[in-house]
Design a protein around this nucleic acid. Structure first.
Lengths: 195, 195
DNA sequence: CGGTTACTTGACTAGCTTCAAGCCTTGTGG
DNA sequence: CCACAAGGCTTGAAGCTAGTCAAGTAACCG
């Protein structure tokens, strides 16, 4: 939990439903609101000239996102999109700052939330240091999912999503995963991926 | 300025000199201190199996670094090294937390510092979305230096450093830069690079 | 002036991307 | 309940491009 929902609502936050695949804000836009997830999953990603997408972050229940741009009043450097149906809380920058003033423990708490986000981004950057596709994918999986070699966990992402996280192409992800499956590093059953 | 030097010193921070190239902490270590730069320049980077280094951050006067691991009490996911002779302030986690408690405006201020760091890391991630070496290098240069096409600025980094920021190889950086020089996108005089 | 570090160039190669085509699964509407 | 569409997955072949390796050159520093 980044900021207590009740405080947010007291200060004027409103909840809004989003359908799967909806965009919340886009790269280049000027930020006006703080968003916090009540339910669902959101990704942020940036796009290059060729339309290729690279995921920058992954956010779940109780996470906030896009705060850096908002606090600094700099235009968004990524686009955010829901990965599932979502319910989000939305509050203006001004009201958020009022909360900071009235509740000193909120910025203090948020500091740890930010530290967490920083740490996660640093982890994501380690993916880029890997040379081979297999290392990249393994890095991605291991930092997002437990690998209890006995009870494998279902990875709820498409091959394309994994490609967007690792910077690889879909075909490369597919070919690499099937190699990894042969080595027993992942399982593929009915096209579903387990780690 | 992340945290006022006087406050840090009052609460027991000590200043220490580092020579160019010294390591401050290493990947995998458990964090004990908060570091803030009084003078000099520091990088953080991660290393892969083959010994290849990928820069994660670049910090200058008044910047703090490594806070995410420290606050979360998670082992460092990167190594930090001075790029120049440096003077750093160092204070224990415990004392830092005391400051947070005694000066509510400190965490509030730090929040913006963290937002800045997050924003910078997000910018760095855009480098990876670029397809060609030229785009990557341009992205790196443009986010770290002004390009006033008339008065070019000297880039104080070695080709290797640029390679470590962009994930390319030295040779690729060199070849790409000389192409860019022919196109007039950068200048190379006496092996020195201007943007 | 000698040694070290950074930079440069060329030739070759490996491996990821691209393009194209086909298959499987899921879900939707009649 | 079935048919069909759409999206995701898979495979193969070919090409390109950044990486690798090796060698040599220029600048810097004590």
């Amino acid at each position: 939990m980044q900021i207590d929902n009740n405080i947010l609502i007291t200060y004027g936050a409103v909840a809004k439903r989003y359908k799967k695949g909806e965009f919340i804000y886009s790269e280049g836009e000027f930020p006006h609101f703080y968003f916090q997830i009540i339910e669902g999953e959101v990704r942020t990603f940036c796009t290059n000239r060729d339309g290729r997408e690279l995921n920058q972050g992954l956010y779940r229940k109780d996470d906030g996102f896009g705060e850096s741009s908002l606090l600094l009043s700099k235009s968004y450097n990524s686009t955010s999109q829901t990965l599932t149906d979502c319910v989000l809380l939305r509050i203006s920058r001004e009201k958020l700052i009022n909360i900071f003033a009235d509740y000193p423990e909120v910025p203090n708490k948020l500091l740890y939330g930010f530290a967490d986000q920083l740490y996660k981004k640093e982890e994501m950057m380690q993916i880029w240091a890997c040379n081979t596709p297999e290392e990249k994918i393994t890095q991605f999986l291991s930092q997002n999912f437990e690998n209890e070699s006995k009870k494998r966990t279902l990875i709820p992402y498409t091959r394309q999503a994994i490609a967007d996280f690792t910077g690889l192409r879909v075909e490369t992800v597919i070919r690499t995963l099937s190699q990894m499956s042969k080595k027993g590093k992942v399982s593929i059953v009915n096209r579903k991926l387990y780690y």
